[in-house]
Design a protein around this nucleic acid. Structure first.
Lengths: 295, 295
DNA sequence: TTGAAAGCGCTAACAA
DNA sequence: TTGTTAGCGCTTTCAA
């Protein structure tokens, strides 16, 4: 059997294009694995394209993938207003969006339930007794940022928000510095890289985590459980997201209707050592040991 | 232009298969990016296959990629005696091995210069004054393990070696425990995951790093510089390895001769806080402050 | 049921 | 130089 001749005749390439913003971001490999394994089992192969978070490269990668007659596309690179994705939608190309959604486009979308995760994290901090809580938001071009920020605004009405230009350590450090200047006792970070930056900002000021300031992140990337202190963070079911995205593409390619256009998989708040009651809080000490409560 | 028809006619698919053992291993994504970008620029697309370190999956992935008429293969999954790779070599398939080499096969190979890296790490520990040094070797099925171990045997003749069944944290913890029982003052780990396991073994015994025992790793994976203490480790030029591997495949596909079959790119020992002189060592304190030297 | 033939869109070989 | 044609290996259609 010769797949090329078959492709020519049947007009099906057996190829799916997978667009990732940066494979180096630890969130992505498990997702890609989920996609790859699911597609592979269905007899489809993955053409991988890494856009390095560059809009032009996204556009040219899509063009190339289209030219190569991919049967469908799985896109994890989308900015909120991606013209490329809008065009894909208009052209009726079988496309599934992963992790990053695009506004005004009704393509299938799969992600972790970030809103629930951030909500849990925000409530966790409040339950610990924090009242001045700062949030480090990621780049405003991404839907993930918007989703998480909306929840923060809702759950932490008096919260201080700082933007980071990118989901990186340096950006987190700067933003956290500004939040500390504003006097927060807890920092919720848009993702774990930003949280690591917050650790650095604390260290630079001689502040201790969680004694002086609590920090929480998002994604539960590898090794954050080994930091000092281990990072409290929101875990997302990355592999399952990949499997689900590939599954949605498969049903779409089979011509079937999707049960739901948007699929949000459950996230989990993992409480570790980086979050604790704020300083001077009576909750710092268990009630039975606390003098202030006894008097 | 229709690439399928062109492929049928020219018998060139424009596809290269990339086999990885586990994309989730942080060493791989930068390598894959290097491969992908280089190949993409040359007009070739990457078919990604993740074998999950499974021999059968490696075999079936190769079969599938062959069936899809990939022009060449980049293989990062090979065990030292991989029958699949031997077969590839025999069949004359354009193949480049990355990171993991296969014995008795003269396919092009690209990797970091692990031997030099491990040598530097071993000498670093000896220079600090360590005399009882333990080594945690990875699975013996991999060439990386053999390469590193050979250097250890050479540089640390009296060293204690323990095998780990896999490059994982739990395996590192167990192996490190055994080394500590043997009374070592420093642990050199086959990679960073094993080193993190060593950290855990130390913590479990109430030992402090680097005060009681030094630890060094290999790969410089993300966040090991943020651990407590920051990990001393050997950094390998991952992205460049990917670029070089793709480059070698391209020259091979162009029919040209390779300047060298094996290409080892320079590694760097990054000394951080996890290595220090052994306890009771006069080198712990600068000479000028040391009473023992004064008397 | 089995078999022959047309044609998918391109490129390379050949003819003009 | 430019234009025409055969055929890559398969699937699908249509005839036997």
């Amino acid at each position: 059997v010769h797949p090329t001749a078959r492709s020519l005749r049947t007009r099906r390439s057996g190829l799916v294009g997978v667009l990732v913003p940066d494979l180096t971001n630890p969130v992505l490999p498990p997702i890609v694995r989920g996609i790859e394994e699911t597609l592979w089992q269905a007899g489809l192969a993955c053409l991988l394209a890494d856009t390095d978070n560059d809009l032009d490269r996204e556009a040219s990668a899509v063009a190339e993938l289209q030219a190569r007659r991919c049967e469908g596309l799985i896109v994890a690179t989308a900015t909120r207003d991606s013209a490329t994705v809008h065009e894909l939608s208009r052209a009726g190309v079988a496309t599934v969006l992963v992790t990053r959604e695009v506004e005004g486009v009704d393509l299938p979308f799969v992600a972790g339930d970030d809103a629930a995760g951030v909500r849990a994290a925000a409530r966790h901090l409040r339950a610990l007794g924090h009242e001045r809580i700062g949030y480090i938001a990621g780049p405003s071009t991404l839907s993930t940022t918007a989703t998480r920020l909306a929840v923060v605004r809702e759950e932490l009405p008096g919260g201080v928000v700082r933007d980071a230009a990118a989901y990186g350590i340096a950006e987190g450090r700067d933003a956290a510095g500004a939040l500390l200047d504003a006097g927060v006792t807890a920092i919720l970070a848009g993702n774990d890289m930003l949280a690591v930056g917050a650790y650095e900002a604390l260290a630079a000021r001689g502040l201790r985590c969680p004694d002086d300031v609590s920090v929480a992140g998002h994604n539960d990337m590898p090794l954050v459980d080994k930091l000092a202190p281990p990072l409290t963070t929101v875990a997302i079911p990355q592999y399952e997201i990949g499997v689900e995205a590939a599954g949605m593409l498969l049903t779409r390619l089979a011509g079937a209707e999707l049960p739901a256009r948007r699929r949000l998989l459950p996230t989990t708040l993992i409480v570790r050592g980086s979050t604790a009651p704020p300083p001077h809080s009576s909750r710092r000490h268990p009630a039975g040991h606390s003098k202030s409560l006894r008097t």
